[in-house]
Design a protein around this nucleic acid. Sequence first.
RNA 1: GCGCCCGUAGCUCAGUUGGUUAGAGCGCGUCGCUGAUAACGACGAGGUCCGUGGUUCGAAUCCACGCGGGCGCACCA
Length: 798
Amino acid sequence: MWVKEADKPITRALRERALLWHQEQYVHDYPFCWRASEDPLIQYPRESWFIRTTNFRDAMLENNAKIGWLPEHIGPGRFGNFLESNVDWALSRERYWGTPLPIWVCQATGKMEAIDSYEELLTKPGVAGTDVWSKAKAANPSLAEDLKVHKPYIDAVSYDSPFAPGARMQRVSEVIDCWYDSGAMPFAQWGYPHKGKEQFESQFPADFISEAIDQTRGWFYSQLAISTMLFGKSPVQSDTSSASTSAPGKIAALANLPATKDSEFSVEFPHPFKNCIVLGLMLAEWYESKDGKQRFLTEEDARSAVGSDFVQKTGKMSKQLRNYRSPQEIFDRYGADALRWYLFANQAPWNSILYSERAIRDSIPEFMLRLWNVFSFFTIYAEIDGFVGPAELQGPVDQLLASELAKAKSYRPIEERSELDRWILSELAATCRDVVERMDRYDSYGACQSLNAFVDALSNWYVRRSRSRYWSSDKQSTEKIDAYWTLYECLLVTTKLIAPFTPFLSEALWQHLAIGLPGVRASVHLCDYPTGDFAQTDHTLNERMGLLRQIASLGRSARMESKLKVRQPLSRVEVTLVDGVHAQWLAAHDDIVREELNVKEIHYTSGSSPFVTYSVLPNLRKLGPRVGPLLPKLKSSLASVSGARLMDEMTRNGKIVLDIDGKTIELDGEDIQVRLAAKDGWAASQGSACVVALNTELTPDLIRDGIAKDAIRLIQDLRKRKACNYTDRIDLVFLVSDPQVEEALVTNRDFIAGETLAQSVTVQLESLENITNSTSDWESVELADSPARLSLQVRPVQ
RNA sequence: GCGCCCGUAGCUCAGUUGGUUAGAGCGCGUCGCUGAUAACGACGAGGUCCGUGGUUCGAAUCCACGCGGGCGCACCA
């Protein structure tokens, strides 16, 4: 009778014998066959071979304590707990495929022998049965030689028993748990100890391994267990050491051999890996109709099939449900790098991560596409200007280090280049150091954040602020050549930096930037990893440029709030700094901010200013330990006095004296923090380091300049729509009805022509009717809210 | 049942030894830029940091309990 059908007869029998005390249904988890999921499994005891790992528990714990686990809690936590409650390793499997257990049993006495190798087996007296293999091999010569130690051939090999005359030794039927094979990887990969001794000893233990958390009891344990048993300290002596040849229970003392038996090689803990990065599990994201009957991989598919009648689901990936997109499709559609970057750059690796098509796709623009855009900007203008970079060099190159590039004739030392160039190279060097440092700590997530911040700085500040240099007409100007060399070097080093993260993008960039040069390394993956030794990190410059970026950002925010578009020039910006230490430098570099914010003038102050209010706050981190419970009162006491007065007191006396509950408390400069806030009524924005206030008054001059800028934008837009080449020269004719517009265009004629590569700019004043009713195919545009017409003719190339 | 981990914006996630106004990307909204352009930028809305209690001058962060989820608990790789 099938076991599952026995429940009823058993119950009945118990009841008949009056032994049934209580009967109920109890819902619980139950194992089912992982292949035929309808088949319930039953468990019952079988005889089995074990390794007495419990003898090594303390050694394994000691070894474990030396391993660098990421995240740290795995070591003492999940893995440590597992080791503490270690039970003997059930080694044997009753299967066909697997490494045969090398134990031969005497058919008469049941005594056993472990055989070291196939060679040893062949030396045994009266060995027989090897012909099964040789016949099979003769019949099928393509059989791999290794198979001779496997089933069924090995099972045919027997020999004379040393325990009983006339008896034969026959192999046991079991194979070894394949986790044993996995755990033997550090040794078996070199064939150690039979061969590969040198390779093994030079590479053992591994710096790090990585797998997901489900391997705690798998690969992580099997490696640690086997390695500790081989190279660990001597085990606790087992009280059953004589059990090695007793058949009942089959508790073989495979592990009772002295730990260093055949090995003169010994190592300190930890081994066989020094660090282990434990990854989270990958979860699926899919969409289901509300009745649960239909499944979709994208929101779009779900919507087009069932309207809004669906729900988003996340959970385990399942082959049966097929609730994930095939990796091959992801590779084909978005590239393997998109998936890699998504996995690296989106969270700490030990968290579980959603394998989400949408999330993978969305991770592309911020980093990879932005970097590619910078590269494409570089190539467009380098080609126009004929910048060849390292192709200038005479003779072969190697991996294009700064020291090699420096030999090019037009390459100038970094110190001689502009501040912006020195800044981005300083940021690049800092990024190299940061990435290396983070990778040394196995912090790939932090490394990616660092890379992302650099590419952002490169794209949204360096290239943006350098554009005029690339566009200038003097192809050989030092500034322009410097700009190309700087950007080239940034791209080159970034290419090397991203190689481990996005290897295909990296290689594609390398092929464009470097390949073709004589002697150059054929792949970026053959280059050394950048350490940032080509430049100093200038922390002061980085800080100052950061401040400049913040001022620009606050200025844009203030414009936004006052609804003043950046194209409308303004006369003046007031910047009030919390700390005046960089004021002079900022003032000397205000051309960048003037252009960025489109203002004529910038004024920096760090003292009192009509645009801001000050507040003085306690430095909690410093004062907390000192004043403790008085802190709340100190806080409100500071808040009740005007910030300006407190600051005066601080400048006059170098300290602020407060009376709290009859106690006198002195605060020095370190004990307080000054905060600025923009006063109401100004077009101003506040940040952590400064307040930026705009003068919003528009003079006729400013309005005219604004109109000219509008006109330039319209022309550039038209150039693009007419598919002009970047270098095409054009002729322009404006028909306008508003005299103010006419004046603005005429006054700024040279400016407009220069910005748009126009050879001529003609402006005609017409009646409004003529403009509105004109049947010409000229472009209809609007300038200063008044209709106008624009004609753009491309000049033939001469 | 036992153990470990997680719970922060609509979504996916950061958040250093407890410290002042909790951040990013995406999505959404508004606007800008326009010689990188089927690209890019800025700004904004949106948060009882799962809950309750505790420690502390101060808790997203530390402790306890609870709730929800994930994983493991030895022959499934």
